[in-house]
């Protein structure tokens, strides 16, 4: 994909997401939950936790710089032959630094809100015995938030992430593969700033 096409895609995304409105409220928060592998036989569900900050951009669009630590659970396999036992191997872990684009009810006032999430991050995948992989990662999902007050809210998010990579040792394919995971997290946020 050339640069012009990438800029066009980015512009389309912003135009599709933007709505009117005005306020300027920041938030900081932490979250934790489950990391669920999607179509991966070599790992199981694990835990995830991290921190994020929300910075409003325009109308109902904000960006969220974030850091995430996610683990996959151990894989298991029923080994036959002379073993007849279940063996395990660690599933690996991700460390991710990224920015999410959040659109919808982003101001965090008292009451219920919902928003969409699209993100990019730089992620490192580490697993014992194999070289570390560091790549750009894509995110998308939905968030639901309930403000107990105008300052404090609880959110529940479902996000999927795609960690693409290419195996340079494979002589038969130029295609990229990917690892995909779903995150379900609960977060606590504190809002500050000013409103219209």
């Amino acid at each position: 994909m050339n640069l012009k096409a990438k800029v066009l895609v980015a512009l389309m995304c912003v135009l599709m997401l933007s709505t009117s409105g005005y306020a300027f409220r920041f938030s900081v928060g932490g979250f934790g939950g489950l990391n669920i592998p999607i179509a991966q036989e070599d790992t199981e569900s694990g835990t995830a936790f991290g921190a994020k900050a929300r910075i409003p951009l325009m109308g109902s669009i904000a960006i969220e710089p974030n850091i995430l630590f996610a683990k996959n659970g151990d894989a298991s396999y029923d080994v036959e032959g002379g073993w007849n036992e279940t063996m395990t191997h660690e599933g690996g872990k991700y460390t991710s630094f990224g920015v999410d684009l959040v659109f919808g009810s982003i101001m965090g006032y008292k009451g219920f809100g919902a928003y969409g999430i699209l993100g990019l991050s730089s992620s490192k995948f580490e697993k014992k015995g194999i070289p570390d992989l560091t790549n750009g990662t894509y995110w998308f999902g939905l968030g639901f938030e309930y403000g107990f007050t105008d300052q404090i809210s609880l959110d529940i998010r479902g996000k999927a992430f795609i960690f693409p990579y290419k195996d340079e040792a494979n002589p038969n394919s130029d295609d990229k593969g990917s690892r995909k995971n779903g995150l379900i997290t609960v977060g606590l946020n504190y809002y500050f700033g000013f409103t219209e």
């Binding site: 895609v9 990917s178 690892r179």
Partner: peptide
């Protein structure tokens, strides 16, 4: 809609693969 645009930009094999 935006995720789909991004997916097509990434390439189909990246989306449809698993381990």
């Amino acid at each position: 809609a935006v995720a789909l645009i991004a997916f097509f930009a990434m390439g189909a094999s990246c989306i449809t693969t698993g381990n």
